[in-house]
Amino acid sequence: MLSVIRERIKNAPGGSITYAEFMEMALYHPEHGYYQKNKTKIGRNGDFYTSSSASAVYGAVWADVFYFMFRELGLSSYVLCEIGAGDGSFARSVLDEWQAKGYPALEYVVIESSPYHAEQIGRKLENHSWSHYSTLEEFQSLCPFFHGIVFGNELLDAMPVHVVRQTSSGLKEIQVSLNETGDLIDVAVRADDQLRKWIEEYHGELEPGQTMEIPLAMTSWLGKLYEWIGRGYVVFVDYGYSEEEWRQPEISEGSLRGYYRHQLIPNPLSYPGEMDLTSHVHWDCIRKVGEDYGCPTSGFQSQQEFLLKNGILDHLAENVSRDPFSSEHKKNRAIRSLIMDHSISRYFQILIQKKDGCF
């Protein structure tokens, strides 16, 4: 991967590329990109955990939430589109619970670009009916107007971002270049008008010395998504900041990081193609784009609050055996791990948006 990036930089005007281009290659290159490789990425043997990998109860709670959302929408058929389905753990737990509850037929659509993950999903969902598309555009070509629920868990944080810094000489874009020995380094260039326009529209002025990620790709992608939806819900589960939080001194250096073997790597240029790259999402931007396309926010809260409100404690097993390694004990420990103050859920937020359109 590093040789591919070096070659791109050498051929780039000015000898540097944007962080967005770097991330696109490091994460999504068809041969060398992190997400495209045939390797375990989620769970104990991977680089990071997700809520759905912690316990099947996570998906079971969502199954009930989805059912009530569909009922509220009043649609004649139920279609759930999960974008960025990973290894299929969430899809399987949702479908298992859906089937166990005897809910009406559900069309479960998986959007997943990684062939490796698609194979994992196929194994996990072999007892269920589902469909797979490599890209959202592929599904949209067959479904030009969508009615249903779109769900993305830790989807937006992995979209490529530009990086800017407010300096004493004005707004600069931080790009990726090479030093004399061929190592990847940061360089500062003048920020273009597109970045300035995004900041003006979605954030306002940066503080002196502040570094921040600008999600041009996400903003454009969201507009196309909301435009495609006729009637339905859009649900994003991710970690991010509001405009006010972005101004706090402790995150003045930005949020772009890597995760490698469950270790946070502060320098995103380390291990290109070998580690996950992620940045916190701009919740205010997502909400505003939704409003602009007639898909306003109907709910926003921490995942911890969401799970408690929607009955995760009802899934606790009663009358468990004395064996601490029994399935009941494991399930109860997993539930507690999702709702305790130090749990993963404390750091995630859930944004629910609703679009009321014509049929």
Rank of each mutant, 00 (worst) to 15 (best):
S134M: 06
R333K: 14
L277T: 02
K330D: 09
A26N: 12
F348C: 12
E31W: 14
Y34I: 02
F66N: 03
S345V: 03
N45Y: 07
A56Y: 04
H203W: 00
G223Y: 11
I9L: 15
Y347S: 08
Q166C: 04
S93R: 05
D96S: 11
W198K: 04
M212K: 08
E291G: 14
L269S: 08
L80Q: 05
G230T: 07
P249Y: 06
F48H: 01
Q99N: 12
W198H: 14
R333T: 10
A56K: 11
S3W: 04
I229M: 15
G15L: 11
S129N: 13
S53I: 00
Q175L: 13
E21F: 04
D314P: 01
V320Y: 02
H162C: 02
A63G: 09
R44L: 09
E291C: 09
I352L: 05
C358S: 12
Q303N: 12
L106G: 11
K309Y: 03
H32E: 15
G258P: 11
D193Q: 07
K172T: 11
G311P: 01
K197F: 04
H162M: 06
S302V: 01
R92D: 07
D238Q: 06
F348Q: 09
E21L: 13
C143H: 12
L27F: 05
H262R: 07
E119H: 08
D183Y: 07
L75N: 15
H117E: 02
D64G: 03
D186C: 07
E82L: 13
A12Y: 13
M275P: 10
H282D: 01
F139Y: 15
L73D: 05
G240I: 03
Q353W: 04
